[in-house]
Amino acid sequence: MLKILVCISHVPDTTTKIKFEADGSALDRTGVTFVINPYCEYGLSRAIGLREEGKQVSITALCVGGPEVEPTLRKALAIGADDAVRIDAPANDSAFVARQIAAYAKGKEFDLIFTGKESIDFNGSIVPGMVAELMDFAFISFATHMEMKGDNSATFHREIDGGMEVLDATFPVVVSCQKGISEWRIPNMRGIMAARKKPLAKVSPAEVREYVDPVKLTYPPARGNTQYFEPEDAQGLVGTLIDKGLI
């Protein structure tokens, strides 16, 4: 039996036009739809794939967050997780989140912890590596492929600058997932019905400190003061790019 933990973060839908509160203290949540972080969905899908390949698996979906994240966890259950856990604490600091996940996972003998390569809100790419270190697990970052090798190890591909790395690792491992490792899945009606009855536990947070203090959110400098050239005037564009030292 492979015990799998899938860490899920709850993020604004990728089409969201990001707006912040006027004082820059937080995201303005009005009208924002929240979804499973797309990279986490790759991890969840890969875990379900292992079951379809005939492995005995148990899949727990976990999210650190307030009650508002529960619909996101329900969706993970609808897609195919067996049970879900919400660690009841705000997720403002990746180092804090990683310590919450590790505190929960310690002693539970997970073989595999799937995460996304990064959470599309703060794009930190911090939680998975920290969980690996805190748990003393091997860590496969930016995984694009995973194939079981026997019952207790797997071959992975991971993305690197300018190519791909092939490696083997014996479990337990933390795998941070990106495109390639699996395809996203749409929950079907049966899954959605079943999800209502699956357990979703609320767990109290461990006592850990925060490492990073958010100060303010602002916008990148506005762009789009576009200088247009006529379609016939490729020369004009090329000349300008040369003058600006861009090419």
Binding site: I120, F122, N123, Y219
Partner: peptide
């Protein structure tokens, strides 16, 4: 932050 849609001071 937010995939380039925001900047966070920390």
């Amino acid at each position: 932050a937010y995939s380039g849609k925001g900047i966070e001071e920390i």
